[in-house]
């Protein structure tokens, strides 16, 4: 195996592209190999302190094709999509988009999320939009507490929000709701027809 090859574009490919990297690049449109590990992403990331792998290490793990490590990390769930990393990356990689593509991969592979509550929150949010066409805050809070088996979470603010009329008791109704349900259904059908490329273990030597 050749260890390095100068491509016509002038970029060095030290490794064959891993299946993970192929998936991430096709879904996010970002060129992961451009990352040279400067660490600005992790330095500016507001939630990096709570992650097991910082964004910089996730970028390296993608280059190396370490799919299981990446999907098991808390990082992909603790990314707030604030885009600070993308804004500051000197290699101009949209790192936040990379993180989003990893969440899509986690969903496609049904991998066990390291941050169960974050994944649950997103799922309930989507379910409520599909049902009502708009978000229903009180319903979201109630479902989250029941399904997540933490019935007393976030209750401290409730009286303040209710007394100021900030939390409507009933969901907003919109005639758009049935169209939103149809959009969800058609998206699902389109994605069944043309699923994203599989992120296989190991590397894709044909790209060498």
């Amino acid at each position: 195996m050749k260890m390095a090859q100068l491509t016509p574009a002038g970029t060095i490919h030290p490794f064959p592209r891993s299946g993970l990297q192929v998936f991430v690049e096709s879904q996010s449109g970002q060129r992961v190999l451009r990352c040279y590990q400067c660490g600005k992403c992790t330095a500016g990331c507001p939630s990096a302190y709570a992650m097991d792998l910082g964004p910089r290490r996730v970028m390296r793990a993608i280059q190396l094709g370490l799919k299981d490590e990446v999907l098991a990390s808390s990082t992909i769930w603790l990314c707030l999509q604030c885009q600070t990393c993308s804004a500051r990356c000197p290699a101009e990689i949209g790192i936040a988009e990379v993180m989003e593509s990893l969440r899509l991969l986690a969903a496609a592979e049904r991998s066990r999320p390291a941050e169960r509550d974050v994944a649950l929150f997103h799922r309930l949010f989507r379910d409520l939009i599909r049902r009502w066409g708009r978000i229903y805050e009180l319903g979201l809070g109630a479902l989250y507490n029941l399904r997540g088996r933490h019935p007393f979470a976030n209750l401290g603010l409730l009286p303040h929000l209710l007394s100021r009329g900030k939390l409507p008791l009933l969901p907003q109704r919109t005639k758009g709701a049935s169209q939103v349900r149809a959009i969800f259904a058609r998206v699902r059908a389109a994605e069944r027809e043309a699923p994203p490329p599989e992120a296989k273990e190991g590397t894709d030597a044909s790209r060498q």
């Binding site: 989003e100 899509l104 969903a107 997103h122 989507r126 708009r134 919109t174 758009g176 389109a190 994605e191």
Partner: peptide
């Protein structure tokens, strides 16, 4: 009859 834009969760499951 406007509906939700999907933030902050729709794009976390499906790009489309």
């Amino acid at each position: 009859d406007w509906a939700c834009c999907g933030a902050s969760s729709a794009h976390a499951e499906s790009r489309l």
